[in-house]
Amino acid sequence: MSEPRPHLLKVKNLKKYYAARQGMFGDGSGTVKAIDGISFHIEQGETLGLVGESGSGKTTTGRVILRAVEPTEGQVLFRLNGGGITDFTALPKQALRAFRRNVQMIFQDPYSSLNPRMTVRDIIAEPLVVSGLAKGSEIDDRVRQVALRCQLNIEHLRRYPHAFSGGQRQRIGIARALVVNPKFVVCDEPVSALDVSIQAQILNLLMDAQQEFGLTYLFIAHDLSVVEHVSNRVAVMYLGRIVELAPTSKLFYQPLHPYTEALMSAIPDLDPDRMMQPKILEGEIPSPANPPRGCHFHPRCAYAQEICKTTVPEFKEYKPGQFAACHFADQLQLQGALKSN
């Protein structure tokens, strides 16, 4: 383990509730707790992986942290370059817009994330233009510089996104995120929509850029092999809550939460002789509009006891750096995807 680095980001008890469109008349009975009180921090220069099944609240987490949608409750604190602490959630409109140059996002869908009606040059330049960081020819110089860094052909800057394949579009999206030299980038499933042979190119680009520019990533994915590949630490989400957070090496060898174990047992291994033995989870992920009481996971959990049905387990540190929300985290001996030898 490397020595602890200063925290760049601290998320405290973050919540985002949506009014549920339910019932015959769309009369909004109840709320969807897309994220329901999550807390974690990210160290400067590290990659925190965020995994979970679809609908568990990963995208919402990323967007709320960047205030693309406003949180219902909770705090997002930034500390850039070891300077003062900024309460991002409390920034007024003007200050917020000024601060935004420090944080960026890379999207999952390479099609919807680029405005088809703008040239690649204008797309990449937008953060630069609106932040006023560069003027006139500086803008073009800087755009060309990042475009080159992202292995785009700078002769193609005049083109529109429809000229590009998914992988190249993703490069454009990355160039747009990097153009303002941000400190923190949310990568929301940046390779999920790409073909296998293209995924590696993009993952390499993201990891190289991190090294080069000292970036800090929140890396959202549902593919655990990808997450293991890029992350220093991993948070596992289930129904709007983080159920486990641990260093990658610990998590994949010795998970503390039964859900993590189940998730890992379901990874289809590339080795046909290591036939997966999936802990078949009972049923499917419940609706976040109507989550189970107590531990959200109890109806599907193989280790559930009476207490799980009534009491929400506390999210706390069981081993150094290993956090989990399970009543039996310190008693269970769970299987990871990897075995130490």
Binding site: R63, L66, A68, L96, R97, A98, R100, R101, V103, Q104, M105, F107, Q108, D109, S112, S113, L114, N115, M118, I123, E126, P127, V130, S131, G173, R176, V180
Partner: peptide, 22 residues
């Protein structure tokens, strides 16, 4: 809901710019 509108917002674009440009 389009991602590019979100991207513009995250980049710090004003509402005005988002409406007229995007």
């Amino acid at each position: 809901e389009e991602d590019y509108v979100t991207a513009a917002k995250i980049a710090g674009s004003s509402d005005w710019r988002i409406i007229f440009r995007h």
